[in-house]
């Protein structure tokens, strides 16, 4: 029983950075903007969060700074693609390149610093309940927050008027513009929100998961987050499920290895990627459902004059 609880907790912890980054990207993509710079934004969020935490001794301040840093990098992307109309795919990749370099550069003096991490909660009374106590009431605050973010995004997109407008912009920016919505401004907000979430996802890595800074600490999680949005067919609930599935399969293959399963580790390491592909192929067969959720204008530039 204890092991089962452990596994659930480990899966949650492994999936959390992906939840943040992918939820943010989902909102941006819902307005029709594809930002492939997630890896770069996560790294910059991670390094700035770490630097601020190290300087101030306050990890929460670090987390806030990480959010701001991710948002700032996303703003660069927004200016380049939304105002200056550059190609989104290429700009996003260039942003990643830039973010990887920038984070490594500003973090040079911090690679040997040790900080006080954000500690897991131990909810009084509740955490001491048998079984459910450990299962539900001992998470890291940032793990709880990631689920709150999911609830907020879900509610915003599908139960508010503003969310409807966001989706309309992603569906047909021309029509939204014709009705009088400020398409470019809405896309700006969504992209910056996406950057903020990616920044927080990065901050989770450097403040909670591996409280330290090293070049490339995200090790490709930004790319996985991008893939998860597609995997989720642009549904927030599936983003969360996908993040835990991915984290869970990774952990499961480690479990199998530690048990001494006689399969080369490379085969096992392929599993999370293959599982994602197979599940995507299965859910994508329902063409209608995808059409309903996929932002039709994804990746398409829009200029009010054009």
């Amino acid at each position: 029983m204890d092991t089962a609880v452990q596994l659930v907790l480990l899966t949650l912890a492994a999936g959390t950075p992906l939840v943040y980054a992918a939820l943010g990207e989902l909102v941006a993509e819902k307005t029709g903007v594809l930002n492939l710079g997630v890896e770069g934004m996560m790294l910059v969020g991670a390094v700035v969060a770490f630097i601020v935490a190290a300087r101030t001794g306050a990890p929460w301040l670090g987390a806030i700074a990480g959010i701001a840093a991710g948002a700032a990098l996303a703003l660069v992307f927004a200016v380049v693609t939304l105002t200056l109309q550059a190609n989104q795919v290429a700009s996003g990749l260039a942003l990643s390149l830039f973010g990887v370099g920038l984070s490594a550069f500003v973090g040079l003096d911090y690679v040997s610093v040790v900080i006080e991490p954000i500690k897991p909660l131990h909810v009084p009374v509740l955490a001491d309940l048998p079984f459910v106590g450990a299962l539900l009431f001992t998470w890291n605050p940032l793990v709880y927050l990631s689920l709150a973010l999911f609830a907020a995004v879900q509610w915003f997109l599908f139960h508010t008027r503003a969310g409807l407008v966001v989706r309309a912009v992603g569906e047909s920016p021309e029509s939204a513009h014709a009705i009088g919505y400020p398409v470019v401004r809405i896309r700006y907000f969504a992209v910056v929100f996406g950057g903020a979430c990616a920044g927080l996802g990065g901050a989770y890595l450097s403040l909670v998961y591996n409280p330290s800074w090293a070049e490339g600490i995200t090790a490709g999680r930004g790319w996985i987050a991008l893939a998860l949005v597609v995997f989720a067919t642009w549904k927030p609930s599936r983003v969360v499920a996908g993040a835990y599935l991915f984290g869970g399969v990774t952990l499961a293959q480690f479990q199998a290895q530690a048990l001494g399963v006689e399969i080369p580790s490379q085969y096992l390491a392929m599993l999370p990627y293959l599982a994602t592909i197979v599940v995507l192929a299965l859910i994508s067969r329902d063409v209608v459902s995808i059409r309903l959720n996929a932002p039709a204008a994804l990746g398409r530039p829009f200029h009010p004059d054009a």
Partner: peptide, 26 residues
């Protein structure tokens, strides 16, 4: 210079190149 400067410089140049194309159509 540390190797990270390469990425920084590459990223900047590429973003500029992509952004400058705006003047072709606008």
């Amino acid at each position: 210079l540390p190797s990270s400067v390469t990425g920084l410089f590459q990223g900047t140049l590429l973003l500029f190149l992509l952004a400058a194309d705006v003047f072709i159509h606008y």
